[in-house]
Design a protein around this nucleic acid. Structure first.
Lengths: 352, 352
DNA sequence: TGTTAGCACTCACTCGATAAGAGTGCTAAT
DNA sequence: ATTAGCACTCTTATCGAGTGAGTGCTAACA
């Protein structure tokens, strides 16, 4: 069934009003604060239709209407206008972000944490942001072995994208510095540019051949390198503004709040909010909105989650997420996410 | 004024009972569930005295009594018995901890996070734990420079205690591998074993003398090393079980809970809970209890904080903390902290 | 045929009154 | 010194009445 123009306008008005107030909205309100010039009785008829179609409901007989998940969906997909009229405001926000992000933040960790905080403060919702990860297998760029103690070998492993990992190998045999130098050369000439999968048996036997006396050590090092490349211990989720959810009565009830906050504390639960959409990779560009049960994370069933993917280079992406009540200000959130996303993209590219 | 034996017993009974139930406790309850064999009327008289002395109060006229902060203090300092009778139970817990901590946890980060979680699950309070930090200035143990890109120099800095940091210096001039080798030798012979303060002007000029063409670079590297040694970016606070506070009605009210959880989210606020006692270093061995306003962190005024310091080697310590309602089970908490502390101490010493 | 005025009805919410229950302080008796 | 007894206080739960927002439906209207 096609929705008539007028119905859409009314639905839009209902949702807009509900987003602001959080109270069920009645026919009289719509009739007054809308340019439709219709009496409340007419609005009532239309609202009854909209209810029958599933876009709005009454919390109890004879109260105003609130949007259903389906109603929100329609709003987000078709009704919502991004506030492109308020260009100056948008630009102001952009500048603020820009200024903030350019400010003496050297470490990625700090940058991301600050971004989350900025976003939380500006939106009044809970936010999260992941470190960027490489979806294609990581390649080894450089390796440096050094003997820094009698029997301890430090392996510094630099992967593509200048991701640096340190591993310490405790030696069973003693080796001299000359050997270390030799190993360095062997490893850097043989392994560089290879991904985990490409380090195969043939290669290993060839390398152990070059350093016959230290077969075992070479194997150990390759193992360590392999594990280090595969290891995603540098994948982290930063959160901020968790307690913002207390600003929304519908989420403040102790059991609800507890579940949500718990999800934010258990970072691995949080990633579920962010990964499932990696699969549906139709368009990473776009900002995704998950309403209520659409999130597949049970504890978020009363929330909406809006995510954006930022990409610091081909195939290396991270996710930014905002969690709030279903009646969140989608326009503002989408706008803010776009601003932060684009700044983040730029920022990384500059520094690369 | 000295407290008579009987008053102490009654106070103890009041507090014990309140810890369990969270409800104001009346004279009748005490009279029945205590071996004093006194009527409720007598208890009432004694309780009136105890109230006058400031150990207990009535939330409103004609209700039972609850302990004041002063009452809790007396309890913690003098009345509380550690459950040494229940040796088997204690031992069981110890074993559980031990088993848990020995289980395939390689990285410190994971170990600490797991410890926090274990403690939170066992106590039903919110927990936190800091990484160990060195209170004496850190010394440089080893440095490794390598050119891993045309104009990018990787500095791997190993400090005492095998704390490893990576820094990347973007070069203004180009240098060859030979120079890097030379620099490595200069740095390792000149700087090793020195703390930040000992890297003085004289030393720097001597070093730039040895590598005359690269004065600026040498200075830059020394700067980077200095910053890296001073930088405590590896100081982290891990938390767990924040949402446990919802299990206690007196903390569940949205505004109270929000403040507490917010403090847990802002890790730097949390450190305030843990550092102020570093000063009063009389006895690090002992477990510290902060009741209500004693914590100096405003948001924790309705909570008690119990902390323990673990030491992985002379001068390198971290802190474990438990936050709960003032009516927390102090005995259990102290016991649990002791168990975890000792396990943690051992664990690190073993691996060193 | 679409729109509107009018009206009866529903439901949540507030407020006050009432009753029950837990606990106290005080007095007088033991 | 201890205790029984009693009047008193304060909280909490429950109930009913009153109010207000909002609806659905019907009948009149353009």
């Amino acid at each position: 069934m096609e929705l008539a123009e007028r119905k859409l306008k009314i639905l839009n008005a209902v949702i807009k009003n509900y987003l602001e107030t959080g109270e069920p909205v009645g026919s009289r309100t719509i009739s007054k604060y809308t340019d439709l010039n219709l009496s409340s009785a007419t609005i009532r008829n239309e609202m009854a239709d909209l209810e029958e179609m599933g876009y709005i409901v009454q919390p109890h007989t004879s109260s105003g209407r609130i949007p259903t998940d389906m109603g929100y969906r329609l709003y987000v997909d078709n009704l919502m206008r991004e506030k492109e009229t308020e260009l100056n405001k948008k630009e102001r926000e952009l500048n603020e972000v820009q200024e903030f992000l350019n400010d003496k933040v050297e470490k990625v960790e700090e940058l991301l944490q600050n971004t989350a905080k900025l976003l939380a403060n500006n939106t009044n919702y809970a936010t999260m942001i992941t470190t960027p990860i490489n979806h294609r297998g990581r390649r080894l760029k450089f390796i440096q072995l050094s003997l820094f103690e009698e029997n301890k070998l430090l392996c510094v492993i630099v992967a593509e994208g200048n991701i640096i990992k340190n591993r310490i190998i405790t030696l069973k045999e003693t080796i001299d510095n000359e050997t270390v130098l030799k190993l360095n050369i062997i490893f850097n000439t043989s392994l560089n540019g290879l991904s985990l999968e490409e380090m195969n048996i043939g290669l290993i036997s060839k390398m152990t051949g070059q350093a016959a006396e230290h077969m075992q050590l070479v194997r150990d090092i390759i193992d360590v390198v392999g594990l280090a490349l595969a290891d995603e211990d540098d994948f982290k989720v930063y959160t901020s503004g968790t307690t913002n959810i207390f600003k929304y009565p519908e989420l403040s009830e102790s059991s609800t709040a507890s579940e949500i906050i718990n999800t934010f504390e258990e970072k691995n639960l949080l990633t579920n909010l962010l990964v499932d959409k990696e699969d549906s990779s139709q368009n990473k560009e776009v900002i995704q909105v998950y309403i209520g049960n659409e999130t597949s994370v049970q504890s978020m069933k009363d929330c909406s989650v809006v995510t954006a993917t930022y990409e610091i280079e081909e195939g290396v992406t991270g996710t930014i997420g905002i969690v709030g009540p279903k009646r969140m200000d989608y326009e503002k959130v989408v706008e803010a996410l776009k601003a932060v996303k684009s700044q983040l993209d730029d920022r990384f590219k500059k520094h690369d």
